[in-house]
Design a protein around this nucleic acid. Structure first.
Lengths: 226, 226
DNA sequence: CTTCAACTATGAGTATTTTCATGTTCTAAA
DNA sequence: TTTAGAACATGAAAATACTCATAGTTGAAG
């Protein structure tokens, strides 16, 4: 899993590289439009993280050029501001996702994994946190190597939270991600409480060393047991 | 409320569809001038979102052609740039509104609603076929004016099929539309058979004058009772 | 440090969805 | 035209998801 970070600010790219390397990604960095293009021409990257602000041109022009020469690795746009304009232009040019700075590293990692899965890149990737490991292609969950039976909704929630490990997750986001449209303006979240209760109890019973913390008035956070 | 998005960029059209579907609109997408015209000839759309830049001709020519054959659904022009010519030409050709990219989804939705209101369709946004009528906003189904209780999956399927009335629908499409991704490679369609059985029996019990025909080896087709 | 209202947890009951076993219909090939 | 196998239908059972009533927690206001 080779990733190219196109970003002129060295502190930022270092921070990202470090986070990704700790997740066993192989990371390279390009600081300019020119450098990015020459690297892209020389090597294959499975995913490219593209800053929109570069010293010698917009990252979007890299994207454009990249698509015009027929490269098809996944591209995630990093934008300094939450600019809808960049987002639309980026997606229009063929980017796979968009993330606004500042972002949590784990959110970025979640996006990278999700983009990879969407693009069907090699089917054997598993995601893990603590002693929990998930194989999204097979809908299987292991804790300490032992398979755990989860119901579909429980599985959906667990996957969603593990992809966002250590991040505060609003209840609304969970509802939207797992239940989708039908959950527009609900007056209560009983269905989440119940699913979470059951999920938690299964995780505990299987001796998971991660825990779903409640953040009063906000949502939840999946953390490692200290 | 059926909406056609005429837009060649799939990322963008998907972003829009998703936003609209979450608002209970029924959305279809055409990627080219040709596809757009054939869909418009086949079905009635209450609103058409028209990108001005298409691979095989300007969206404006779709608009022109559409007006020349006397279709009167609302049309909203989506322009990649804030181009005054496009706006003027579009409105001159009979578009109902114009919105410049990038736009906020909420703005687009507001425009659609406003256009719809202007065109006098206020409030009742319902889809019907034979004596069946559905109010997607309220998840209600009426047959001969009498409300019929359907379970959620039954409702989903009915809505999906009514939207595609008189069209052959593959089982796979139903599965994908109603059950989503995790149905990928199933070895049987028992769940569809069962849902269909229950839906059919409810429709019959309520004296619907439409019927779900089976097309052996392919799927189903929703037809009016002859 | 109380109090109160909003928020969350939980067990049990209810409803919905899926699976299963079995029977029926359809189509292509003999 | 017969027949075999796949596709589909169906009722009932099993699995899953949701709702409800109730109880416990939290944090801000007094």
């Amino acid at each position: 899993m080779k990733i190219l970070i196109v970003e002129d600010n060295i502190e930022i790219s270092e921070m990202i590289s470090e986070a990704l390397r700790s997740q066993r990604f192989i990371v390279e960095v390009a600081e300019t439009h020119t450098e990015a293009m020459s690297k892209i021409n020389l090597y294959e990257y499975e995913c490219i993280l593209l800053d929109v602000m570069l010293p010698d041109g917009s990252g979007l022009s890299v994207l454009k050029e990249l698509k015009s020469i027929g490269k098809n690795g996944s591209v995630i746009i990093l934008s300094a501001r939450d600019s809808l304009e960049d987002k639309i232009t980026g997606l229009e040019l063929g980017a796979d996702d968009y993330i606004a700075k500042p972002f949590h590293m784990s959110e970025l990692i979640a996006r990278i994994r999700s983009v990879r899965r969407r693009n069907g890149n090699n089917g054997k990737m598993s995601i893990s946190f603590g002693n929990i490991s998930i194989t999204p292609e097979r809908f299987e969950v292991y804790i300490d190597g032992v398979e755990v039976d989860l119901l579909k909704k429980e599985y959906d929630i667990l996957l969603y939270m593990i992809e966002r490990q250590n991040i505060l997750i609003k209840k609304e986001m969970i509802a939207e991600a797992i239940w989708g449209d039908y959950i527009d303006q609900v007056d209560n979240y009983d269905f989440i409480y119940t699913q979470l209760k059951n999920l938690r109890s299964k995780l505990t019973k299987a001796n998971a060393d991660v825990v779903i913390k409640t953040v009063y008035g906000f949502g939840y956070k999946m953390c490692e047991l200290t």
